[in-house]
Design a protein around this nucleic acid. Sequence first.
DNA 1: TCTCTTATGAGAGTTACTTTCACTTCGGAG
DNA 2: CTCCGAAGTGAAAGTAACTCTCATAAGAGA
Lengths: 213, 213
Amino acid sequence: MSTSLPERSLERFDEYLRRLPLRERKKLRTRRAIQDHALRLFTERGYGATTVDQICAAAEISPSTFFRYFPTKEDVVLDDEYDPILAEVFRAQPPDVSVMDALRAAFRAVFPFVYENEREPMIDRVRLMMAEPALRARMFESMRSGTLAVMVDLVSERTGLDRADMRVQAFCWAVLGVLHSAMYTWLDSDADVDLPELVDQNLKFLGDGLPLP
Amino acid sequence: MSTSLPERSLERFDEYLRRLPLRERKKLRTRRAIQDHALRLFTERGYGATTVDQICAAAEISPSTFFRYFPTKEDVVLDDEYDPILAEVFRAQPPDVSVMDALRAAFRAVFPFVYENEREPMIDRVRLMMAEPALRARMFESMRSGTLAVMVDLVSERTGLDRADMRVQAFCWAVLGVLHSAMYTWLDSDADVDLPELVDQNLKFLGDGLPLP
DNA sequence: TCTCTTATGAGAGTTACTTTCACTTCGGAG
DNA sequence: CTCCGAAGTGAAAGTAACTCTCATAAGAGA
């Protein structure tokens, strides 16, 4: 297995691996190898121009193994798993904090996490997702079934409203909307501005009723 | 060509056709035939279970013709073209009307239009889009590059703000979010409630700053 | 060391989509 | 009316993303 890969915080990762049974260790390593090689090939020669077979050759696995790890080629790029953190921080907010402010606190906690730990690969990934229509669409679908569902849980829980209540749904969908907005704005600035800060501003602006001149 | 199709306001359509040169007429008829047969097959046996070849057989065309009319199988279901109406009504609003209220007026004008004219096929289409993840994702992408872009134009035009201004982007993305919310709520009620009304309520709620108890 | 479970690889098959090329048909100019 | 160019169409072969099946190999537990 080639070692000329971008190594996203390798020490921490290996330390984490050491505690797992060998089988799990190999699985995680394979999974990560596929992702790393795929991301590298995508940025090198483009998403559409890279075939699954090429990724497999680079990662030294068979195509059947590829699809055992990732149901589709698109899923290699989409690897969010930050929703639990979001939920945890949100629930830890004292009850007198408003829903929007609790959400802002939660995002302030979750975004810096991914932002600091693997900044460059994340920028590559987001840039890739925005560049490829198919990936953009998949990311939306992923956020809809993931982040949105979590937010609906949290908001209905905190307000006592039904999950199906129009206000809960509208609130969460609007938040999802400005999250997308923040990501686009962030990318347009070439990741120059601070993403957590941007998200926070967007949420505040949303809570203020989107006042325009 | 079979005539046992759901006939969406056929008289009006034929009247419209009569004014076009023969070539355009045939093209539109072929296009519509593909869509009708596809939608019928999709609802009968499911989206994934229907192959393009089956659609072609039903519409009596060749697969190459199919892809000449629709770049992908998904595009058969996505056939929005209401953004111009939205823009027109929005621009017709007097300058003292707020951005959000102008938008509400625009949506009140555009939604009843599609809603009244082809109610049943539209419900089928939306239901299909929501049921199939791939279609959901594509619809988002379509609204992002279509409706959202139009809204950004309109809002920046009316406020004098730059299109890239964070407030313009956040505003439009939030609106797009609650639009999605309204569609989901609508479908959950089995299209029982009034969609235009639902959209209007959502926009008002958004403009009020999403007040939760 | 010997099973038993589970990950993997090989290969064939399906389907969405692409590309090319020859054929037909329509619309207009003379 | 007729011919000519443009445009729609179909047949067929090709690519790539998946899917399925089955045989093999490698870790886990006794």
